[in-house]
Design a protein around this nucleic acid. Sequence first.
DNA 1: ATTTATTTTGGGAACGATCCCATTTTTTTG
DNA 2: CAAAAAAATGGGATCGTTCCCAAAATAAAT
Lengths: 361, 361
Amino acid sequence: MYVLYPLIMKTKYTSIIDIAKQLNISKSTVSRALTGHPNVHAQTRKAVLDLAQQMDYQRNSLALGLTRHHTNTIGVLVPEFMSTYFPSVILGAQEVFQAAGYQVVICHNNESYDMEVANVKLLLSYRVDGIIASHTKETRNFDHFRLVQRHGIPLVFFNRVSEELNVPNVVVDDYSAALEAVEHLIKTGRRRIAHLAGPDSLINSRLRRQGYLDALKKHKIPIDPGLMLSYDLTIEKVRIYMKHFLELPAPPDALFAINDPTAIAAMEVVKEKGWSIPEDIAIVGFSNDFSAQLVFPRLTTVSQPTLDIGRESARLLLQELQSGAKPDYTNRKAPCVQLKTKLIIRDSSVRKPVVKKKGKK
Amino acid sequence: MYVLYPLIMKTKYTSIIDIAKQLNISKSTVSRALTGHPNVHAQTRKAVLDLAQQMDYQRNSLALGLTRHHTNTIGVLVPEFMSTYFPSVILGAQEVFQAAGYQVVICHNNESYDMEVANVKLLLSYRVDGIIASHTKETRNFDHFRLVQRHGIPLVFFNRVSEELNVPNVVVDDYSAALEAVEHLIKTGRRRIAHLAGPDSLINSRLRRQGYLDALKKHKIPIDPGLMLSYDLTIEKVRIYMKHFLELPAPPDALFAINDPTAIAAMEVVKEKGWSIPEDIAIVGFSNDFSAQLVFPRLTTVSQPTLDIGRESARLLLQELQSGAKPDYTNRKAPCVQLKTKLIIRDSSVRKPVVKKKGKK
DNA sequence: ATTTATTTTGGGAACGATCCCATTTTTTTG
DNA sequence: CAAAAAAATGGGATCGTTCCCAAAATAAAT
């Protein structure tokens, strides 16, 4: 059915024309006064500025964007923000964008592919100047991002990046970080190390899994396919899979989880079963979420420089924006910034040595 | 210095005129085809739609908004999103807005007043149709929100609402919830109950404090002003104040904290000092953050229906939007929805009775 | 006092869409 | 088959800006 939207009652916003009429001058002069153009009489400027203030003048960015062909606005696209990861990245990005005079609007899709597509088109239709994004776990088709590229809008991916799209990236070395984490487990004596991997649609999930596998291989530990499961990042599945692991005839003595929420949910299952961490089973997560230091026992995990990931993404985008806005990477490889992670060893992975308490002071 | 922005190179976006020219028809017809107007020949419509697809046509919302005087877009303003509170509220709001056909953009100010003002003006300048907001802890001047009202843009506050602004609200009964929480402490035998309150700029901070005071009064417990401190919600301050509490000649045997992050930071200090929770001191938080169930011992807290807070805020705004867009509350009181909280008693507040372990199975 | 430079203003096109009001084309009706 | 009704199209105003170009007003130079 075709809906004819009623033209909403005459807007209450004042326009420069309203001001011009009041003052009996032309809109051009008002515009100049408002934007700080030098060629306008001091007295006129003051009159305009005062009246604008008094009339609650609020520049119309729609009209501005329409004439100027750009909007000084950056879109940020994230799949979720219940963990601290994305909020923190956004914080970092915002810091840089603000300093550069750009406004930031955030779009959130709750891991829904359809929502992501809709949001990309929304940002495009509002003619944002650039987009930084991390795709959803459902995203397998990247056409909507290609659309962004075709329109010549700078685009930067972080964390969840795409191999099939040649776009500037900000990532960490997931592979090595995972390898290091699993090696840590091996070095502390674990042999049956399970892995709860994320969906294959996420590149960092694949890389972390590869790191896991290669760590085992490197230390000549036979790979038991029954100890590795990919799942869709929903907490319920963690519980099912973790129970399954623990009821195995030869259960694992360690778990490397794709991320901290997974690790924490797994810990819950372990505790319910009455096993103790890390004595019976060691647990390692990924990302150093805020909650990792709160759980009991405190979770060993890989910390990511989230603020810097945000800052770097913003810088990369700014660079595109300034380089004449022609991010054409058909021939050369788009820049990729790789930031450092750090393995944070806490209580969930190392058995406490029985040690005499050192008297302090 | 006056900067003359260069007119960015001719946009790569296709317009309806481009399509019209290709097809040798008028832009009016193209517009009609694209918007689904019934009076357009099926054949013409198909041709337009196909070509639009092929040319990557992306409707220009700036132009649309300019002519239509509204944008089908809602702005959401939040002060922070490192805790799960605001993300969860946003989730709920987004659900309702989407169903109603509205787009949502989120602005985040990291508890900065200046940023909040800037964001309000940004949203206004983009002519959003409505705003839902929770103000920063720094906000004492509400002129920017009054500006929103003066422009006739529907506005809804949630959680952190303002008394001096007659705006539709979604809140919980902070006063009663706090009273109940403190009564719980009293009933479990605590007598020296400390309170770490938030800044006075936040109404829920004031209400929770009043609930705390009245609970003591109700149970005839003398109020010790030395056991109550207001602070600015930064973690460092929690540490300082909590240490201070613990070193008092007569230290508290319980703490009621303004929110969960505060409670959790306080727990940290308690543990460092070697005291045990809840034996030596009971701790109660507020909001039932995700992390409340993760800390050790698990935190007693007041749960808030965050998703519903978001949904209700959205519904309230939608109502304004539909009621002819004249939210004039100069005479009558704006609607206020109050949602239910629930005290969640966990391990941080009740001493475990020594009990024989019940054998399972 | 002219002429020349400089400062300050105004007029109007442009941006990309919608929608009202013709006008043209097609279909239906008597 | 003519007249009336319905369907499909086109033309142009409009929204609120910026900016180019020309015109007017003022200041500086000869």
